[in-house]
Design a protein around this nucleic acid. Structure first.
Length: 428
RNA sequence: GCUGAGGUAGCGAAGCCCGGUUCAACGCGCCAGACUUGAGAUCUGGUGGGUCGCAAGGCCCUCGGGAGUUCGAAUCUCCCCCUCAGCGCCA
């Protein structure tokens, strides 16, 4: 969330940003927040005045008792105060809640380089790598290919858990693990600390890392428990320092999360509905950084470069887009998507999402940095996919598919799967 | 799940039985100033959140959370949450 002081002192700066997003209803919300905040300050000031009087009376009462003087006049005055204070406190608390809720719904300030646009069709391409090559034969849908090779069982997964799940089998499991191992290896070499986080977390922690509205649509909740299955390891890692003061000497903190991810929303269907592209459960290596505010834009480029380097190593063509105002979401100040080339679909599709959340996420989580007893600041947080194996696997299955129905293993993955060069060979 | 012990500021730790000289002592750490060539040691002040103020400074809130009793609650009462230890169960 934004700093209330920013809104109080420079509401027009915030308003200009909302106009860039074309968020008219948010502008109204901004006006409401400004008004509620003003009322809140007036109300608390009034309540504080009465509390001051109450404290004075209490002290005077103790003095009078000690001196064995009559204190009934004081007692009488004090008797009237609690009701008034209670009413003002209730009003203030209501206003405070409104302000907080408003703040949670106002989006982050955008970086100046974010392009203005209505939706993902207006994202701006900023880089491309590799040349998509013609396969020279008709590629099989990867889901059918995997079934034919006995490497995935969508039917039985559907029987026991419904659509959106799969039994990965045999070489596909090894390929999945190789992708994870390769990406984690890359991150460790880049100086990131691996983290295997809890797969579930409490609602209050979740509210800090993501938008409230997402709960019903993307989150799995454990029945009867205050626990949600994580949608990405970004969430437990981001929430790790909730309500803490990070010693500034420890910054930057760079983590490589590894986890399964669980999402209810698998969205609309495009080409090849059956398959790994959109799943309720998939595996992912995630990059997450806490850093000083002045360093976050440098880190944003580093995270992007890590993501690009991984796909370059896999020799899969990709492009990078600067996500426009209509597609960027609430939390990020700037976001790059890296989109890999999918030859069967004939287009680039998102495999990596790389965001600088500036201080927005950290403030929601009540994370500060500095020295205890000294000045504090709100650190910046950044997150980016390193490798989501669902999409990575599909990219490999399309880009490395051979005419005989086998799939060549990308060179960089071979050391992670016993130097195996091909999968599906035995079954062809 | 059962039993017991706990939850006080960044950390440690008093206070709770017996409500009011405790507007949370003391120690460590940290910050600022003084002293010093510098560092250390020492001394002094400060150390969470909010709000008002140009500032100096003022005021309010904060003892796991909530409700209650009272003129007044860290302290008394009730409910809830969490942590730790032992036991049980368990990959």
């Amino acid at each position: 969330m934004l700093d209330i002081r920013l809104i109080r002192e420079t509401p027009d700066k915030v308003r200009k940003d909302l106009q860039k997003r074309g968020a008219v209803e948010k502008e109204r919300l901004l006006d409401d927040v400004v008004r509620w905040d003003k009322e809140w300050r007036a109300t608390t000031a009034e309540a504080d005045g009465l509390k001051k009087r109450r404290n004075e009376i209490t002290r005077a009462f103790a003095e009078a008792k000690k001196a064995k003087k009559d204190a009934t006049a004081l007692q009488k005055e004090a008797a009237e105060l609690p009701r008034k204070i209670e009413a003002l406190d209730a009003k203030a608390s209501d206003l405070e809640g409104k302000v907080r809720n408003g703040l949670l719904r106002l989006p982050n300030l955008l970086h100046e380089s974010v392009p203005v646009g209505k939706d993902d069709t207006e994202n701006v391409e900023v880089a491309t790598w590799g040349t998509p090559k013609e396969p020279g034969f008709e590629l099989k849908p990867h889901g059918e290919l995997l079934e034919a090779l006995g490497l995935a069982d969508f039917e039985r997964a559907r029987k026991i858990a419904g659509a959106g799940f799969v039994y990965m089998m045999g070489d596909l499991v090894r390929l999945d693990q190789a992708l994870l191992a390769f990406a984690l290896d890359h991150m460790v070499k880049a100086g990131f600390t691996p983290v295997f986080p809890p797969y579930m977390m409490h609602r209050d922690a979740y509210e800090g890392v993501t938008d409230l509205g997402d709960f019903e649509t993307v989150m799995y909740k454990v029945d009867g428990e205050d626990l949600f299955l994580i949608a990405t390891s970004e969430h437990p890692i981001g929430a790790m320092y909730k309500d803490e003061i990070i010693d500034e000497a420890q910054l930057p903190l760079a983590f490589a999360g590894i986890s399964a991810c669980f999402r209810r929303e698998i969205g609309g269907h495009g080409v090849d509905t059956k398959g790994l592209f959109r799943m309720h459960q998939f595996n992912k290596i995630e990059q997450f950084v806490f850093c000083r505010p002045e360093d976050s834009w440098t880190w944003h480029e580093k995270l992007r470069e890590n993501g690009e380097a991984i796909y370059r190593a896999l020799e899969i063509p990709y492009r990078v887009v600067n996500v426009c105002t209509g597609d960027i979401g609430t939390v990020a100040a700037k976001k790059y998507d890296i989109e890999a080339w999918y030859p069967r679909q004939g287009k680039y599709r998102e495999v990596i999402s790389c965001s600088n959340c500036t201080d927005y996420q950290a403030r929601r989580l009540n994370i500060r940095a500095g020295k205890v007893g000294g000045d504090k600041f709100v650190p910046h947080t950044l997150n980016s996919t390193a490798m989501a194996t669902s999409r990575g696997l599909v990219a490999i299955l399309e880009n490395y598919q051979n005419e005989d129905g086998t799939v060549t293993v990308p060179k960089v993955l071979r050391p992670f799967m016993g130097d195996q060069e091909t999968i599906g060979a035995a079954k062809k």
